[in-house]
Design a protein around this nucleic acid. Structure first.
Length: 418
RNA sequence: GCGGGUAUAGCUCAGUCGGUUAGAGCGCCUGGUUGUGGUCCAGGAGGUCGUCGGUUCGAAUCCGUCUACUCGCCCCA
């Protein structure tokens, strides 16, 4: 701890940041529940194998972005870089394959050792949804509709674009891969250095390259759409029809290829141009082979994850902090009355704050800074009469409040009634 | 992992050609008001000028270094 800076790429969520963060999560949570998803949580770290095997040994996330460390017993553990692998592991561990489908949503911190920049941190939060055990396009459609509804609830319906693509089934991808590699091999000289390496490891990713030279080559490359098996083509058509039936606008992006190896069939991203280079706000797809790859039964799945910080940056109607009632006791006798009065009011649902010290002026000043709705002044004069002075801080109006029965007069100041 | 930019008060930022006591606004504290907030007035606190080193009679200012932050690339939420 050379200084008191947080670790690079990590951030504190101060109360104001936290309200934005909470607003995103709460709306996502409420909406996901409407679609029949139930919240679950898995540990923030797993055996390294859980991620290494499923995400793809050659993927960037696995090769250079994982926080991996040795446990005292010598096991290799990794801070989760994403949520799906952990959920899939939990499905196997808990035998949930006996109770399909599993419809789960989750929220929590993820960790990737990347160079931080706008909208990208080393510890960040994802909200995600998984629908496991349904092989038909209904699942893809439901999961996309849920995503759309959540973004709408956050107020972003008009500010994001849905891009979708199909990666086809295993057979389609194998056919296409051969055709693509054949074509690209004839243009190796024109490819960027990165893409030359990708040609062997993961040629589909070249489709997504931003390198101008690559793009020229890719422009004339064979299309995945032309290599789909009839079953894969039908599947994608059904997904699109479902989106149209639900009036969910989308664009087909034939170059959309996800970075994790477990995806097949449907792949999608909701993007925005409001976040600089990090335009993706929510992304996912179908992962029919994932659970089997981990050593579980062959169970299909589809899901997505959203970046909570990215959504929090975009949200506009952030709920305000509740406006408290502030108690202002003046003197020792009043302190005692305030102690019990505060508790009485809180039990009745009021948000109650108390100045801890200072004279009347100082306390009112502080109450004002807390955006208090009203102050209850307890001085010797009031106490002698069995009253408090209720000062409405918006109007400045003052009225006596009977201490024996304070609740009726305060009813209008309860948070729910304002 | 690679490239660009930035670093002066709690925050946002000025700071001339290198010149001696480093400034503003906001915020904070005190007083004007011994029991009345917001507005106003007066005053006050708060700075190793990111680090280490160099050039110079003299460095916030010029050069190098390291660190941090930031934007972009790769990649991704």
């Amino acid at each position: 701890m050379a200084n008191l800076q947080p670790v690079r790429g990590t951030h504190d969520l101060l109360p104001e940041d936290m309200r934005r963060h909470r607003a995103v999560i709460e709306r996502a949570r409420d909406t996901a529940a409407l679609y029949g998803f139930a919240e679950m949580a898995t540990p923030v770290f797993e055996f390294t194998e859980v991620f290494a095997r499923t995400l793809g040994e050659t993927s960037d996330v696995v090769t250079k972005e994982m926080y991996t460390f040795a446990d005292k017993g010598g096991d290799s553990l990794t801070l989760r870089p994403e949520g799906t692998a952990g959920i899939a592991r939990a499905v196997i561990s808990n035998g949930l394959s006996q109770a399909l489908p599993v419809k789960a949503f989750y929220n929590g911190p993820m960790f990737r050792h990347e160079r931080p920049q706008k909208g990208r941190q080393r510890q960040f939060h994802q909200f995600g949804v998984e629908l496991i055990g349904v092989p038909t396009p209904q699942a893809d459609i439901e999961v996309l509709a849920c995503a759309r509804a959540i973004l709408a609830a956050i107020g972003l319906a008009g500010r994001v674009t849905l891009e979708i693509n199909t990666l086809g089934d295993t057979e389609s991808r194998a056919n296409y891969r051969t055709a693509l590699v054949d074509y690209l091999s004839g243009h190796v000289d024109a490819l960027s250095e990165d893409s030359r390496q990708r040609l062997e490891r993961n040629p589909l990713r070249i489709l997504d390259s931003k390198d101008p030279g690559d793009r020229q080559v890719v422009a004339d490359a064979p299309a995945l759409a032309d290599h789909l098996t009839p079953a894969a083509a039908d599947f994608f058509a059904a997904v699109r029809q479902g989106l149209e039936a639900l009036d969910i606008p989308y664009e087909i992006n034939p170059r959309l290829v996800r970075g994790l190896d477990y995806y097949g069939h449907t792949a999608f991203e909701f993007t925005t141009d409001a976040l600089g280079a990090q335009g993706t706000v929510l992304a996912g797809g179908r992962y029919d082979g994932l659970i089997e790859t981990m050593g579980g039964p062959s169970i299909p799945g589809v899901g997505w994850a959203a970046g909570v910080e990215r959504l929090a940056m975009l949200i506009e109607d952030v709920p305000a902090a509740p406006r408290p009632l502030v108690l202002v006791p003046l003197g020792e006798a009043a302190d005692k009355v305030a102690l019990t009065l505060a508790e009485t009011l809180r039990r009745a649902g009021h948000v109650v704050e108390q100045g801890y010290s200072g004279n009347l002026k100082k306390r009112l000043n502080r109450a004002n800074r807390q955006n208090a709705r009203a102050a209850l002044i307890l001085g010797d004069d009031e106490l002698a009469r069995g009253e408090a002075t209720l000062r409405d801080l918006d109007s400045g109006e003052q009225t006596p409040l009977p201490l024996a029965d304070p609740l009726p007069a305060l009813a209008a100041y309860r948070p729910a009634d304002r």
